[in-house]
Design a protein around this nucleic acid. Structure first.
Lengths: 256, 256
DNA sequence: CGCCTGGTTGAGAATCATCAACATCTGTGG
DNA sequence: CCACAGATGTTGATGATTCTCAACCAGGCG
């Protein structure tokens, strides 16, 4: 099933051994949703050359921390990351979850220091993309520059969706939206849209959606009672996707 | 006082007459906070050439609407804009306010269609920057490419601050943060950091911060009672900026 | 086996929304 | 210049959603 998820298939002691160093952008299953989209094959090779692999993270390891010097953005190849900041009064704020094919770290460009921290929710393989090299290459390959502009813009548009969610929607609507978002992102990777395992804790979900753990738990219970979801710990099955969409108040949204 | 605010100084019938068509990027007071930062003078001229001016908007006029074809981003030269989306159930969601020197429309890059609408809160002068031309020029001028990447990244980082605000903070903290943000953005334009006129309605403030008009009004009253703000309709004076910062739970934040 | 983290469920409290009445401002037209 | 209408803002009373505090349960790991 999850052939792009290394996390559950190897132990902890020798992560590097099982890692496939043969992966490159050309043969990566994710290249349709990652940076190389719309590049010519020789251009992909150029991009491929600047990308550094072989940095699998174990669960709870940090990819970078807030205020670290910014030098790269990162593509998730397998596993899941969460990005978060610490508020002035010491509380954590989860700002996003990043699944395979997605790019993390773009909020650090503007100040040359990371605006958030990123840690692995499970064992994760990461492609590091040195930003200065990417800049140079972008100036040479117009479609790459455009694609990267689009990636940044996409993150803005997504954040604004989250803003709307937090500003206007009830607890049930927020959870429903998140489930639909994860479902859509799974579908994009050719995984099941109705059956998946949540990589994050209830605490992280609540934190991300501006809710307490208790509320998250109660909403999951309610959704289960109403026959919309089957919830077994972190294992989620969407039983009534139309009901879920109606609950999320989503007409024509593309949840990616 | 507000020499870069045309809005209050001219009537409605002949907006174009009073508009200063001599403005270019080189002599624009805002060029330190707009795009041309860090460009050589001849590079500024190149940028200047692609920028289209002379599009003053009157209050409530749209710069673009959601789903309009995306072809440009826009720099605010005077006045104020608000960006907003319409949720599936028909409610408005304000996603940002844009002051002179700031760039609006960047959320449209990713889908080549605007992800939000932008309308003028008061008479506003706008610089239109055709995006394809900007892309071409960015490929030629590395510092421009970098600056634009940074602008996009900055918007992401800002949106994430708003997410945190909506997710974790009380009504008072949200209002206090917004006042501090407006104050800091005024200061950046060499205007008063403690005395300013809000260009947006209470409804817009509430909408942006995820609160009702009534709550916004009550919080303003409370802040006034506590001697932190003097509020006279849209005229705001910050009487106790340290108290305001403490209230906003802000230690070391740069509110721009 | 027992501890510890993570998750669930319940009861009471608090913040903010809703509904409603009233005040103020703006601008239009007489 | 004044009067009026509609939009905008303020204040109060009530109620709902969600948070807080607390107890309890389940699973994983030493």
């Amino acid at each position: 099933m999850a052939s792009d998820t290394l996390s559950n298939t190897h132990g902890k002691k020798d992560l590097r051994c099982h890692h496939d160093f043969q992966v490159n952008c050309t043969n990566c299953r994710l290249n349709a949703i990652c940076l190389p989209i719309a590049l010519e094959s020789e251009e992909i090779d150029q991009l491929d050359e600047i990308i550094q692999r072989g940095k699998p993270l174990r669960k709870n390891e940090h990819l970078y921390r807030v205020n670290d010097h910014f030098s790269s953005v990162y593509a998730v190849r397998s596993g899941t990351l969460k990005a978060y900041t610490i508020t002035d009064d010491g509380k954590e704020q989860v700002t996003g979850f990043y699944f395979p094919g997605e790019i993390v770290g773009m909020d650090g460009i503007c100040k040359h220091a990371h605006a958030s921290s990123a840690k692995a929710l499970e064992t994760s393989a990461i492609c590091e993309i040195p930003f200065e090299r990417l800049e140079e290459l972008s100036a040479k390959i117009p479609s790459l520059q455009r694609h990267f502009f689009q990636l940044l813009s996409h993150e803005i548009a997504e954040d604004q969706q989250l803003i709307t969610l937090l500003s206007k929607n009830t607890a049930e609507e927020r959870i429903a939206s998140l489930m639909l978002s994860i479902s859509a992102r799974n579908a994009r990777r050719k995984l099941s849209a109705v059956n998946f395992r949540l990589p994050m804790s209830r605490t992280d979900i609540g934190n991300y959606l501006g809710l307490t753990v208790e509320t998250v738990s109660r909403v999951f219970s309610r959704l289960q009672k109403h026959g919309i979801l089957a919830v077994d710990n972190k294992e989620i099955t969407i039983l009534d996707i139309d009901g879920l969409k109606k609950m999320a108040n989503i007409g024509s949204q593309d949840n990616d």
